[in-house]
């Protein structure tokens, strides 16, 4: 590796010389000069301004200038539907966050420590396959599994564990399960970098000095992977509160997420001002979550978690 890198400048210099350049070749560097870097950043900057900054500013502006002005927020919060949707969204998202982070950490730890190659492969495959599957496919699979006459209820009935089929579809249980399945890969991928850096000799040392298995996990492993866990939790929560398709398909019309109420306002009632205000509320909750997480573990951990 080293030799390759040190040889490079000579190659470049040689190439330049044969083309008759009398300029002295600068040593190769991974840092681009400003006049090259800036133009390369322009498309990104334009895209950012056009598709992120402008809509956000416009949304904020509309939410306080159209309709009843700042009263849009009062309108939104005066609605029982909006309040309940916020409650359902936050509660379900917290549950999804807990399940996904616990599951993701367990899987990441198993993938890190297992001595069996096939097991590691299986874990990675089972995490990444749903990650790549379309959201409708995943939800449809859950709708089939959780149906009143679906495989889960049939199996439980056949085993004699229940007498009546369980009410699974169109309940918060279905929404939390479906969303957890979708968010598990994000939690796994956020936790895995932290888990990967844990020196496994520390475990032996801890055990050697008399710590129990549980104590080792709680006092040695957990502090080491804390940044990954917090990053994972923040990412999962911030994404979860914006969910739309899963709550509609698995939860039905009577347990709405905020996104469903916003969609009502836009497409059914044409009430853009209230939709804008509700969207800003959703956005503020998401940003506040990320801010708390960044404060707790630093931006680097969150960035690391995002890969």
């Amino acid at each position: 590796m080293m030799s390759l890198v040190t040889e490079r400048p000579d190659d470049v210099a040689g190439g330049a010389n044969t083309r008759g350049s009398r300029k002295k070749a600068r040593p190769w560097s991974s840092t681009l000069p400003l006049r090259t870097a800036l133009p390369m950043l322009v498309p990104l900057g334009v895209a950012l301004v056009l598709f992120v900054v402008y809509p956000l500013v416009r949304l904020l502006w509309d939410s306080v200038t159209t309709g009843n002005g700042p009263g849009n927020y009062a309108d939104a919060l005066a609605s029982g539907a909006v309040r309940r949707a916020i409650g359902v969204t936050l509660l379900d998202s917290v549950l999804v966050m807990l399940l996904a982070v616990v599951g993701g950490t367990a899987l990441a730890w198993a993938a890190r420590t297992s001595r069996h190659k096939w097991l590691k492969g299986l874990i990675w495959a089972s995490v990444l396959l749903p990650f790549w599957m379309g959201v409708v496919v995943k939800n449809y699979a859950f709708a089939l599994l959780l149906a009143r006459e679906g495989p889960i209820n049939s199996a439980l009935l056949d085993l004699g564990l229940i007498r009546q089929p369980l009410e699974l579809m169109y309940t918060p249980i279905a929404v939390v399960l479906g969303m957890t399945y979708t968010m598990l890969p994000y939690a796994f991928l956020a936790v895995f970098p932290s888990v990967g850096t844990v020196n496994l000799d520390l475990l032996n040392a801890s055990r050697g000095m008399g710590a129990s298995q549980r104590g080792t996990f709680a006092r040695v492993v957990l502090p080491l992977i804390r940044p990954g866990i917090i990053a994972g939790a923040a990412i999962v929560f911030a994404m979860a509160i914006g969910f739309y398709v899963t709550p509609v398909l698995l939860g039905g019309a009577q347990t709405p997420f905020i996104a469903s109420v916003i969609s009502d306002d836009i497409f059914r009632f044409f009430d853009y001002p209230r939709a804008a205000a509700t969207s800003v509320i959703l956005l503020v909750i998401a940003l506040a979550t990320l801010a708390v997480a960044i404060k707790a573990v630093g931006l680097r951990a969150i960035r690391g978690g995002l890969g």
Binding site: G80, A81, Q254, V261, D264, R268
Partner: peptide, 10 residues
Amino acid sequence: NRRWQEFLRG
């Protein structure tokens, strides 16, 4: 529509 939304979602 508003009352319906409150009835169904609220």
